[in-house]
Each structure stands twice: as C-alpha cells, then as structure tokens.
Amino acid sequence: MGIKIDPGKCTACMACELACGYHRDDAFALLSACIIAYRARELKDYFGVVLKEEDTLVIARPEGLEVKRIGAVEEDQGEADASAKPMLLREPCDLCADREGGPLCQTVCPVDAIYQG
C-alpha cells in the first residue's frame, strides 16, 4: 500500500505539498514535503505531482503514472555507494504513520486525486 495519484484529477493546487510540509515541520513550509506539485512548465500547462517514497519516485504526469527507482546506478554513471547517507531535506513518505486519519495529503486533496492503493 502506498500513495497513488490520479493526474487527471489533479489541479496543481499544492494542498498536498503544504500538508506534507506541515507533517514534517509542524508549521507551514514547503521545502521538506515529499509530495510536490510539479509546476515549472507553466507556459505549456504541463503539471503533475512527484512523490518521494523510500526507494522510488512516483511521478504523476498528464500521460499517467510512472514509478522510478531512486538512486539506482544507471549505465556507467557511478560505482556502488554502500555508505550513502540519506539527505534529510525531503524524507520519504511515511504515510503519516503518526496520524490516525491516514496520510494528510490524501485528506486535504479537495478533488480526491490522491488515494492509497
């Protein structure tokens, strides 16, 4: 079970991102959120949501959902890195384990684009 995103429903409102930031910081902030509304390609109206999980990135694009391994060594990019330390900037999704109502991002999504599955 993990967070899933329906890119067709998403309206890029960022409620999920702020909720996640709140879950991490107990304040309103965006920089530590592990779910991010991707909104850089504004002139093309190309937006979606990226979710950082323990080992994967879940990318909800208009085309559909893609799941990518994080840190996998691709081609000849690098050698094994056994001592790699996690960067604590954006910790992976913990499904808001300490929250009775489940993941807060799911709760605050006004258009029900976030679900678990």
């Binding site: 840190g71 060594v73 990019q77 690098g78 050698e79 890195d81 960067m87 604590l88 900037l89 954006r90």
Partner: peptide, 17 residues
C-alpha cells in the same frame, strides 16, 4: 542531472544540504 565525482554519484539535492 547526476554527477559522478570520484567514486560517488552526486545529486543536486546535496547542494542544499
């Protein structure tokens, strides 16, 4: 982007650390 520097692979997030 990721960079291979020496034996390690670095991602841009490391700047912000």
């Amino acid at each position: 982007v990721r960079w291979r520097i020496g034996a390690k692979v670095y991602e841009p997030a490391k700047f912000r650390v």
